[in-house]
């Protein structure tokens, strides 16, 4: 039985989860990184991506993360995310619209490309976590 540790995910408007977990893989700005029990103390910035969680009963969960920070210390992991959503909380229709809108804006030379790209990335991330196939969304367009 793998050792477990405590994971807490909080966002500005709520505390999303606080559970015992066995391992996580978090979307760091410099690439995904895995954390197991007894990890060395660490503070890092998170980018837009998927947080993979494995629980002691071997179930897994994915959470969409939109940037933030992660602190690992004393077998506790704290994630301060700008936004975090579980698959069932994701509004697929909205994410789909955001994706198409962001794609259009990227073709428009007058808009802020950085912002449009970030919006596109967030929308893709949400849809991925919600289990929607991106190809289908783009075909429908």
């Amino acid at each position: 039985m793998a050792k477990s540790f405590h994971l807490e995910v909080v966002t500005p408007d709520r505390s999303l989860l606080s559970e015992e977990v066995v391992s996580i893989v978090a979307p760091g700005v410099q690439g995904y990184l895995g954390v197991l029990a007894n990890h060395a103390p660490l503070v890092t910035e998170l980018g837009i991506g998927v947080l993979h969680i494995r629980y002691p009963d071997d179930t897994e969960e994915q959470v969409a993360i939109e940037g933030g920070f992660m602190e690992v210390a004393h077998n506790r992991v704290l994630i301060l995310a700008d936004a975090a959503e579980r698959p069932q909380d994701i509004d697929i229709q909205r994410a789909r619209e955001a994706l198409l809108r962001a794609r259009q804006r990227l073709n428009d030379p007058t808009v802020d490309r950085e912002r449009a790209r970030a919006a596109l990335e967030r929308a893709i991330n949400r849809l991925r976590v919600a289990g929607v196939e991106l190809g289908k969304v783009l075909e429908e367009d």
């Binding site: 760091g28 700005v29 410099q30 060395a40 103390p41 660490l42 503070v43 890092t44 910035e45 920070f69 210390a73």
Partner: peptide, 15 residues
Amino acid sequence: LEFIFEPSSEELLRR
């Protein structure tokens, strides 16, 4: 604690 900072602690603070 000997924290590992990624990127550096100054950079993190800046963000």
